[in-house]
Design a protein around this nucleic acid. Sequence first.
DNA 1: GTGTAATGCTATTGG
DNA 2: AGCATTACAC
Length: 802
Amino acid sequence: MNETYLDELNEIQRQAVTATDGPLMIVAGAGSGKTRVLTYRIAHLIRLGVDPFNILALTFTNKAAREMKERIGRIVSKGEARNIWMGTFHSVFARILRAEAEKLGYPSNFTIYDTEDSKSLLKTILKEQGLDEKVYKPAMVLSRISAAKNNLISAQAYLQNNTVIEEDRMSGKPKMGIIYEQYSKRCFKAGAMDFDDLLFNTNILLRDYPEVLNKYQDKFRYIMVDEYQDTNFSQYVIVKQLAAKFQNICVVGDDAQSIYAFRGANIQNILSFERDYPDLKTVKLEQNYRSTQHIVKAANAVIKNNREQLEKNVWTANADGDKIGLMKAATDNEEGQLVARHIFEIKMQHQLHNSDFAILYRTNAQSRSMEEALRRLNIPYRIYGGTSFYQRKEVKDMLAYYRMCINPHDEEALKRIINYPTRGIGDTTLDKITIAARDNDVSLFTVCENIAEFGLQVNSGTVQKIQDFVAMIKSFGVMLEVQNAYDLGHHIASHSGLLRELYSDKTPEGVSRYENVQELLNGLKEFSDGENAPPIDLVEQNDPELQRIELEQQAELQDDINAGPLRTLDQFMQDIALLTDADTKAPDADTNKVSLMTIHAAKGLEFGYVYIVGMEENLFPSALSVNSRADLEEERRLFYVAITRAEKRCMLTYASTRYRWGNLTTCEPSRFIEEIDTDYMEYANSAARSEFGGGGVPASPLFQRRAAQQGAATPQVNVSSGPAPKKNLVKVASTVNTPTAPLDNSHLKSLAVGMTVQHDRFGRGKVVELEGAFPNTKATVHFDGSGQKQLLLKFAKLEIVG
DNA sequence: GTGTAATGCTATTGG
DNA sequence: AGCATTACAC
């Protein structure tokens, strides 16, 4: 065992590592060695004699868990490290739920629905309820349901909650509760849980089964939660429950890096934590080891614009380094070229690897122009995020067969494959099956099994086809326990006809789809052949259920010895839905590539050289965030996260035009650029220099423009805010720079025919006609003075007067 | 029921 | 621009 690990820590880090018992909160500034503290803390616990089986560590990604385990293994031993329960909330509690599923009326091999499955189910329900998909947008409905679950509001409670009923009525969606209820019912009937159910049902389990709670409290004597700022209420309650007995709970987080409020993450959890544990010990890690002076200072300058934050002083002893670089491009494509060329030059100049570079953006759609430019310069890159391997259509189709053979009641899987490849069971038949299933409160598969009993009105040919399908699925099902994952997986691929279907498509896309399924089969092969259980240190464990999952957990982590128990398809499928792109291992061994990802995906990572692209208003900060302080502050934290990913150098870029929705839009530099002190900024191309730099010029065009906008919105500001911008200057600036920028005209959403409006130039008028969806609505207005005009609502300077 | 052509909608962020 | 749903011919 490596005994020197404590010497590698600074005084405060050491405190965090050695304060093993009782509640502890570690406020960890960006780059302050948080991961090191966590790993050493766990290693230290083990060294002090704590059984790894009694340690639970919850991380934000599975990849983080894997890496941490590896590092712990190097300090203690590999065998001990693998016994720690470590993973994301979702994967850890999915495992526990599988062990305890029967208590909740679920099968232990329940399916995990991903977002696509959830939305597809919602669409079915909307259709059944005769509701308009335009009003009840599936994504929106799902996020509403998700928010309810994350706040531990069941469908029943939802239907009786006056607050939400009122909210839904006000937003014109009174049926939301019914949809939620139906959705829950259908998931249950299909033996399926969605992502939020994994946490929600864990809460139900711990709430309603004291003996289960007790068991896991005793098991998890030491609990650690990483990225605590990004946990939601549901997760908070789980942790609180589990830690209630021993109170050995350590949370690590940084409020400045909370970027998942949109998903229900709640900064309150940190504050509640202080309230829940009066004898809480708090440790603040403030020394940054990652980045240069300039990067740390720039990041601090940005984050201090947020009103809500814990007091913290992040500093570094590192060298000044380069300043934050700013580059302006004319178009999004040129932005890509600018970045690619910059990477190329820096790489040559300093003899660096491609993997030293990362390009970070706000939205996935921005990757395209970057990819093109990198490809042109032959710079290898890898995109993280986006659709993961397991979400590709052809892979999901294959997985749907696997899912059905494990859990035939899986409704979404059935809908995908009952007619793919085509076998003459079309929409009409499927509709009939769906209706019968709903009316009799059974699963779709049950109806298919007993067509006559449910009185399905279909012709005999169709009956035969359905029976063949059922027989096929059943024939796969019986092989589950006797065949390994690959053999069965391959058998299904060929006997379902899916492999043949894909093979017959010789288009390049078709070939690639075929290859992806082959790749999936390769994965199965590796899983099946792989690495089986070394002799397991048998632990004292009274609960056979618990022991079984312990064994399974070990089986999953085997890397050493061959031969052993059969590795089956249902084991492989267990938490496929929980794997993200980052967890999917790179298909090729070559890891020397530039990384491209969203800023969200970059959380917890670090790179020598970071490019933050698309620094534009309405993109970053996102257009949807600029109207609320809380949302804007989250965007700013996101920017803070982005900057602090960089070790050596951070470059910002923006474009003045960009294609969005297929048409060209004019862009304005992000307000965040101005929040960085000019002392830490360097204008790295002439376009940026002329817009921002200009040495002694007091007010950049950008500043004038913004001041003008603020002045217009809040006239009283003009009085106290120094030299008021000159009217004529303002006008020139705004017409030159933003000739066609859409206005925020959300107040015109409610505009209706017959209303009276007031226009800047045309005066008073009456709305004659409205055409198209907001904000692209075209309005025909008859003005008292100047006659009939057509106006686009997103550009029109209109006010409603009556 | 199946296959193709035209239409329409969309793009925060993710386990 | 790219994808999913819909409309329509077979």
